[in-house]
Design a protein around this nucleic acid. Structure first.
Lengths: 193, 193
DNA sequence: GTCTATAACGAGATAGAC
DNA sequence: GTCTATCTCGTTATAGAC
């Protein structure tokens, strides 16, 4: 069947489009992404993009989904090592590095800053997979309430947000991850017997 | 002299312009603010705005400065009560409420998300006044290193960011402010003699 | 200080040929 | 699936009259 290779071509094209979109976001900000500029970079005419995305917000949704897929596969790349506490630390570091390394990711995945954008159910399911993973590790530590998850995500979001906004490229905030998680665990998590 | 009233008229006009800009941001997001829409709302022609702001980024700078002035005056409205710890708590609550009450404020004041925008020196000085105030209270608690300030701001930014992104209008994150500050102080601040 | 007029450009989206 | 052509609308910004 040629269907396979046709689907492959299609998906490679879509990949090019998403790569171009992320490049624009990296260079000029997420708000600077436009279909015209994306088309220019992938050497297509702008209307041709509508064969791959149905609107600009749909493009953002595809970017959202792709980023979560990348992040999740990055989490799966390293086999879980150590106890729940060490796994939570490693997961947190991976997520934090992921968004700080590329501020538009922080903006698209964790902040609601694009007028009109809301992830589709399919994309939101990917976001849930990350949340569930965090919740699972927290539960293994005995931190199994919504409040625990909220505080934990606030710590991660706070470090990422401040790092990106006030010291891009540096580590003035990310360096505090371990200390803050340790404090969080010590205070909120019941000691193991 | 009529100079006084002329300056007053001017400043009232500018106030109308900023009010309209904030209204747009509140309704449709900071990225949706345009000079045309502002002009429509204040019943002026769009080119006339250039008598008050010199560019769109200059408008954002004026919004930035105005918001910081409002926040600082809100902090001054209530006389400092209690010890440094209680004052820090009150200040934090005021700041957090201020940005959560109006998400574009969070975006403009504490996140770097508008392509090309950077506060002018004068506006940045206002931001510094807030930082200095926090640093002063932290120092009074014995938390006088940059690291202390970084962790403190991460806590505040994290709660605000998550609240605005995931539960606008609610309190799923802001309700944890007191608990998180207490933990922060207990862990980072040397106990008083 | 405010207006009209307009430049110069860009955006998102659709129609229809090939 | 990709193109050309085009619609429609928007934007920031400037020139110059009043």
């Amino acid at each position: 069947m040629t269907t396979q290779t046709i689907a492959d071509r299609r998906s490679r094209r879509l990949d090019q489009i998403l790569t171009a979109a992320w490049a624009i976001a990296t260079e000029a900000g997420l708000g600077a992404v436009s279909l015209h500029e994306v088309a220019r970079r992938v050497q297509m005419q702008q209307p041709s993009l509508y064969g791959y995305v149905s609107s600009k917000l749909d493009l953002f949704d595809a970017m959202f989904a792709q980023a979560y897929e990348q992040l999740l596969s990055r989490l799966d790349a390293v086999p879980p090592a150590g106890n729940a506490r060490e796994q939570l630390l490693q997961l947190s570091r991976t997520v934090l590095d992921f968004v700080v390394d590329n501020p538009p990711r922080q903006q698209l995945l964790f902040q609601r800053t694009i007028p009109g954008f809301e992830p589709s159910p399919a994309s939101y399911a990917l976001a849930r997979r990350l949340t569930d993973r965090c919740a699972g590790l927290l539960a293994a530590l005995g931190a199994d309430t919504p409040a625990h998850l909220e505080v934990y995500t606030a710590v991660l979001a706070g470090l990422g947000s401040q790092q990106v906004a006030n010291d891009p490229g540096g580590d003035r905030w990310t360096r505090h991850l371990e200390a803050m998680l340790a404090i969080f665990i010590d205070h909120f998590v019941p000691p193991e017997p």
